[in-house]
Design a binder for these strands. Sequence first.
RNA 1: GCCGCGGUAGUAUAGCCCGGCCUAGUAUGCGGGCCUGUCGAGCCCGUGACCCGGGUUCAAAUCCCGGCCGCGGCGCCA
Length: 431
Amino acid sequence: MSKYRTHLSSELGPNLDGASVVVAGWVHAKRDLGGKKFLLLRDKDGVVQVVIGRDRKDLVEAFYTLTQESTVSVVGTVRADPRAPGGFEIVPSGIVIHSLAKTPLPLDVSGKVPADVDTRFRERVLDLRRDESRAIFKILSVALRAIREELYGMGFVEVFTPKIVAAATEGGAALFPVAYFGREAYLAQSPQLYKELLAGSLERVFEIAPAWRAEESDTPYHLSEFISVDIEMAFANYETVMNVLERVVARAVKEVREVASRELKLLNHELREIKLPVRRITYSDSVRILAESGEKVEVGEDLSTPHLRRLSELIEEDVYFIVDWPDRARPFYTMPKEDGVFSESFDFVWNYLEIASGSTRVHRKELLVKRLEERGLNPENFSFFLKWFDYGMPPHAGWGMGLARLGMMLTGARNVRELTAFPRDKRRLVP
RNA sequence: GCCGCGGUAGUAUAGCCCGGCCUAGUAUGCGGGCCUGUCGAGCCCGUGACCCGGGUUCAAAUCCCGGCCGCGGCGCCA
């Protein structure tokens, strides 16, 4: 056979009546009516029906041989027929079996029988063939393209920072050690310090790349390996980069609504447009509102997930910024406000979830050194970073966004794992 | 790590509270049969399961203890 396929299911229709085509995909289902047999062939875009009559012994034999999820190419002609789903079907002249799937399948791909989350991730490759899974990754891809285009439009360039790093970049979170030619190194927990250095030359940079955290976190929105969307922008403060962020997110939502409406419908998810500007509410006001509603909130501490759920209800917003966080709850590179208590920082919250966080960064070396010391970190360990602040660092600001978390909100998924092809968490290392 | 809930054929579930009538029901898958327009095709026959260990009892899927595993919530986490 010269070609595995000439047309995708999405490229076929009754208008191609009589055309010779080759379709390829997976055996989605078989229906045997005796004298008439229907083979439903699924590809990345959908399902086409292949109809087999009694007369062709070889095709009937192939039909009986085929198992669910086997891969085949079907050579045949398109026939418009109102009785067929979509108004057309394929009348085959030949069936080429590429790979025969074992039975029974460890997971139902067709969607008739549900599976537990654990089973689904154990059988992830089959799970990824389900309509819902394919819809999720289509949406995520549309969002990624939108994010990139919006950032390019604002003059950002895409960069890559090292993922093998020498030191615990910021003290805090636990790192995965790696053996590096006899020296100790770690998987990067964030591109933070390197993207700042890059903003010191390219001015507007972004990176979409993995980050690793060896945390004990065991929730539906934490992974030990996740994709972080990061920007850093020179001659900007947190107000400027909040504007960038809301534009990026609003653009992603808009594109998904336009380009992936079919997928949203399939997922039964109503994605509402984001109206700009997104509301800004200060941390202090958030705490006050929560306290007034009877919540117990420790002033100065991070807000918990239940707090964010409650806050979203109270202020009646799906999407909002919490700005001006207490300085002591933020990392050393965050610019404090003049009062010394709060900081030029923000979280971007969607429903109950922190999607992104960012800040104005400190660009003066003395202040960075002071802040490292205040947090019990040794400035010498940060010399690879601090050195460059002697040579003209611009004022700058930036943010980092969890791609899968954004994806949850775009798709209505309840777990970041759904947005991750092969998630890595405390327990899962395979597949 | 803490709290709650759970673990029954390949998959998903019923049964468990109130032990015996469970030879463990159903759906889907799988095997076989019927059917020339199915579209979650239908109908008939068949196939296959109580997480592991201990205990209570005449009797345990069911009650108790321990373990392992999972899910949800929280915590941890820039």
